[in-house]
Structure formats: C-alpha cells, structure tokens
Nucleic acid binder design. Structure first.
Length: 119
DNA sequence: TTAGTGACTGCAT
DNA sequence: CATGCAGCCACTA
C-alpha cells in the first residue's frame, strides 16, 4: 500500500479512517497509534467531530471507543445515527451494545506511520 | 502565545 | 459492572 505523504496529525487521521473497510471498526486509541501519536485518542475524537462540520466524507461511524462500544459522550443523536449506520454495514452489537472486536476490528498488516518522538 | 475543550483511556473505588 | 478521576493531546479562539 502506498500511503500519502501526510504531515499533520489530522490529515493522517482522516486518511487512516478513510481506509477502514466497510463492515469493520477501529478504536480512537488505535487510530492515534496508527497516526504515530499514541495517547492522542481524545484528539482523534475531536477530529471526528470536526470532520462533520468540515464536510469531509469519511466513514467516521467506524471509529468506536476502547470498550468496543459507541461513545455516547457526544450528542445522542449522533450516537443513534452511528449505531444505525454500523448495523447497516453488518456490524453486530450484543445486548450491552458491545461489538465483538475479534470479528469486526480492522487490524491492518501495514504500518502506516511510526511513532513520532516530537513534532 | 495561552488557556479552554472534549466522539478518550486506564486504573482505582 | 458502574463511576470517578487524573493524565493526555491536538485543535481553536
């Protein structure tokens, strides 16, 4: 896979999320690591939120939290939409609204970006 | 340049 | 299993 020469954290995040396969999910923390900024999970969440107002067309619904659940810390309206979208993709939720990560989590073989020591 | 913010996390209660 | 809380971090005003 040839990855674009993206410099900024946000551009990398948007690129990574755009690569998540239909019917699969990734966690905020996972995306942060893949973008070379482990620990920036919270920032990833902010970017997903911004992506909407920015009008970016990315599969933001495929990004969930480390508990394998949709984050309801944002507005419920968005959470409901996310749940519906994922179900449409075939992603299944158990009674506790949790996703079976062994089945649906996207674990790419390729390394996107190595960890950034500074920046 | 600085302070505030939040779609996060892991650990402790 | 459910809360609470203190780090963490890029983005914005």
């Amino acid at each position: 896979m040839t990855k674009p020469d993206l410099e900024t954290f946000s551009d990398r995040v948007y690129y990574i999320v755009s690569q998540v396969p239909f019917g699969h999910v990734v966690t905020y923390g996972q995306v942060a690591v893949m973008a070379g900024h482990a620990g920036a999970a919270r920032a990833v969440g902010n970017l997903m939120k911004n992506s909407i107002s920015a009008g970016l067309e990315i599969p933001w619904q495929r990004v969930i939290n480390a508990q394998a659940r949709i984050s309801f810390r944002g507005d419920m309206h968005r959470a409901d939409a996310q749940l519906a979208l994922l179900r449409q993709e075939g992603v299944e939720f158990n009674q506790a609204l949790k996703i079976d990560m062994d089945t649906f989590q996207w674990l790419p073989d390729d390394v996107f970006w190595e960890a950034d020591d500074h920046s």
